[in-house]
C-alpha cells in the first residue's frame, strides 16, 4: 500500500515537472503565477500521500500550512506586480 502511495506521489511530481513548461512559455505573468499556484495544490497532495506512506502525521501539518499560505504569493502578485495596460 505504501509503495502505491509513493508511486502516486512520484506521478504527481512528474506532473509538476511537466507544468514547468507553462512557466517557461508564459506568455503572460498571470500564466506563470497560476502555474505556481497549481504546483502548490499538487504539493499539498504529495505531502498528504507522503505522510501516509512514511507514517509521519506531522506532514499533514506541513500540507495544511502549504495550503493556508498558497494564496499569499497570489495576493502579492495582484497587489504588487504592475500589469501592462494594453490597447484594446
Amino acid at each position: 500500500m505504501n509503495t502505491f502511495f509513493t508511486i502516486v506521489a512520484g506521478f504527481l511530481l512528474v506532473n509538476i515537472a511537466a507544468g514547468l513548461v507553462r512557466v517557461y512559455r508564459g506568455p503572460s505573468p498571470a500564466d506563470r503565477m497560476l502555474s505556481a499556484q497549481l504546483f502548490g495544490t499538487t504539493g499539498v497532495a504529495i505531502l498528504l500521500l507522503l505522510s501516509q506512506s512514511l507514517s509521519t502525521p506531522a506532514l499533514v501539518d506541513a500540507a495544511l500550512v502549504l495550503g493556508l499560505l498558497a494564496a499569499v504569493a497570489v495576493v502579492a502578485f495582484v497587489t504588487r506586480i504592475p500589469q501592462n495596460e494594453r490597447d484594446e
Binding site: L68, A70, F77, E88
Partner: peptide, 29 residues
Amino acid sequence: KMILAWLFVLVSGATAAHLISTTALKGGI
C-alpha cells in the same frame, strides 16, 4: 484534518483564480 487541508486549498484556489483573472482582464489580456 486532511479535509481541512483540502478546504484551505479550495478557498485559496478559487480566490487565486478570481484575483488572477480579474488582474488579467484589467491588464488587457
